Amino acid sequence: PGLPTPPERPHYLLPVAARGLSAVFGQAGTHWSVRHTGIDFPVPSGTPVRAATDGTVTTRWSSAYGYLAVVTDRDGTSTWYGHLRSFRVRKGQVRAGDVIAYSGSSGNSTGPHLHFEVRPDGGAPVDPLPWLLAHGLDPR
């Protein structure tokens, strides 16, 4: 008899606990200069935002995204978290599920929400929904 094996830690998690989207990838609208480059979670300001993957977090200000956190995974995929109110982790290593920031409405935003993007190899954004679904996560 030995100790039970702890469950394996998930390597992918949704960035917020609440499900439901207020904007989807590619959506056109008057608030964007180009089509929408991510998905939006309509959460109240101050909602904990978790790293969706393991990786290295960096943070910065952007006039479009406001307070922005970027987590870059070992495979080069970057996940972007925009319109944040504040950061909990400004730089360094994080694991999927670590709280990295708190949602807000900074930058070009019409109200509190989390803007989430996926950028393979740090390149152009792709639709996060199929990426999340491929990892067993459904934000809808």
Rank of each mutant, 00 (worst) to 15 (best):
P10G: 09
T53A: 00
T53W: 00
A134Y: 02
T30K: 14
L132F: 11
R9A: 15
L84E: 10
Q93L: 01
T59F: 00
A17T: 15
D138C: 06
P6W: 10
S45P: 04
F25D: 03
S62M: 02
R119L: 03
G38P: 11
V94I: 09
V94G: 06
T110V: 02
G26D: 15
P15D: 10
T77Q: 05
P128L: 02
P130E: 07
P139Q: 09
P112Q: 04
S86R: 12
D40E: 14
L137T: 13
Y12Q: 14
V16D: 07
F41T: 04
R88I: 12
P112W: 01
S33H: 14
I39K: 01
A17P: 05
P128S: 00
T59D: 03
R88D: 15
G107H: 09
L13V: 15
H113Q: 15
H31W: 11
P128M: 01
R95H: 12
D121M: 04
D121Y: 03
V43D: 06
F25A: 05
D73L: 04
V70N: 01
P112F: 01
T79W: 03
A17S: 13
V34F: 15
S106Q: 13
H11N: 12
V99M: 02
D138A: 11
L133K: 15
H135S: 11
V49L: 04
D121K: 09
G20Q: 12
H31D: 14
S86F: 03
S62K: 03
A124F: 06
P42W: 10
T58F: 03
A23L: 08
W80A: 13
Y102D: 11
T79E: 10
G29W: 10
A96H: 08
R90L: 08
Q27S: 14
P48G: 03
N108G: 05
A23M: 08
W80P: 03
D138S: 12
L137Q: 10
S109A: 15
F41W: 06
R95Y: 03
D127Y: 00
L14H: 14
R95G: 01
V71C: 03
D121L: 07
E117P: 05
A96N: 04
S45D: 05
V43E: 01
S45T: 14
T56P: 00
W131E: 02
H83D: 08
T79H: 09
T30D: 13
P125N: 02
S45Q: 13
G29F: 08
P15M: 09
P44S: 08
H135M: 07
W61D: 10
H31G: 15
L14Q: 13
T37A: 10
V99W: 06
P139T: 09
A96D: 06
G76A: 02
I100C: 11
L132E: 03
T53N: 00
V99F: 02
G55W: 00
G2Y: 05
H115L: 08
F25H: 06
W32Y: 09
S63G: 04
F41G: 07
R50T: 08
D54N: 05
T72H: 06
D121T: 04
S103T: 14
T47M: 02
G66M: 05
R74S: 15
A64Q: 10
G76D: 10
S78K: 14
S33I: 08
G55A: 01
V118H: 00
S62L: 01
V43G: 00
P4S: 11
P7A: 15
S109W: 11
P1Y: 09
G76T: 08
V99Q: 09
L129T: 08
